Simulated assay, not measured.
Amino acid sequence: MKISTKGRYGLTIMIELAKRHGEGPISLKSIAQTNDLSEHYLEQLIAPLRNAGLVKSIRGAYGGYVLADQPSNITAGDVIRVLEGPITPVEGIEDEEPAKRELWIRIRDAIKDVLDSTTIDDLAKHSDDVVSDGYMFYI
């Protein structure tokens, strides 16, 4: 399973919101500038996150976005599923022979376990340790 920029940048948005949780709304422009990302691209990603109930938008001159729940209640899996779809390493697992099917199921379950046990709060607390060109997840 390969996570695209949608998933990676979506996690970036959520991490930035988690870092400043409780401080009021954060603009996408601020997140884009802090992370050297396209504000226009982030605008495309925030809509599904809002529709899924992971973030709330605040209108007005000092508006922006806030997390819809505590950072410790939102997992990386929540974000990845919204932006990337179902978590599966290969298509058509049910059509594989039993030995291969078992392997793909075990890989899928391991990925789900990591994503579902890693909260946005966990990522925000460790984001200073991550190199600027990506995240490193170990399974």
Rank of each mutant, 00 (worst) to 15 (best):
L17C: 09
L42I: 05
P25I: 09
R108L: 00
R20Q: 14
D121K: 13
E16M: 06
E97N: 02
A68P: 05
T12L: 10
S72A: 15
G64T: 11
L45V: 11
T75G: 03
E39G: 13
V90M: 04
D116F: 07
E91Q: 13
T34C: 01
A124K: 04
E91H: 08
P25D: 06
A124T: 07
I31K: 08
S132R: 11
Q70R: 15
P48F: 11
D113G: 00
Y9F: 14
Q44C: 00
L28K: 12
E84M: 08
E97R: 06
K2A: 10
S57T: 13
R81Y: 12
E97L: 06
I111K: 02
S27H: 02
M1N: 03
G22E: 13
A32E: 12
G63Q: 08
A47W: 08
I58S: 08
P98M: 09
Q44P: 00
P98D: 11
R81E: 15
Y62T: 10
Q33C: 00
A68I: 07
V131F: 07
P86N: 10
R8D: 12
D113S: 06
R8K: 14
D36G: 06
G24D: 11
L28S: 10
V66D: 07
H40K: 15
I87L: 09
L54K: 09
D109S: 06
R106Q: 15
E16V: 00
E39T: 09
G7C: 05
I74M: 05
E23S: 15
G63E: 08
Q44D: 13
I93A: 04
F137G: 09
E102M: 08
P98V: 04
T12Y: 00
T119R: 04
K112I: 05
Y41V: 11
I80S: 02
E23K: 15
N73L: 07
A110K: 13
N73T: 03
S117W: 01
H126Y: 00
G63R: 08
D113K: 11
R108V: 00
K100E: 05
E23T: 15
I111D: 02
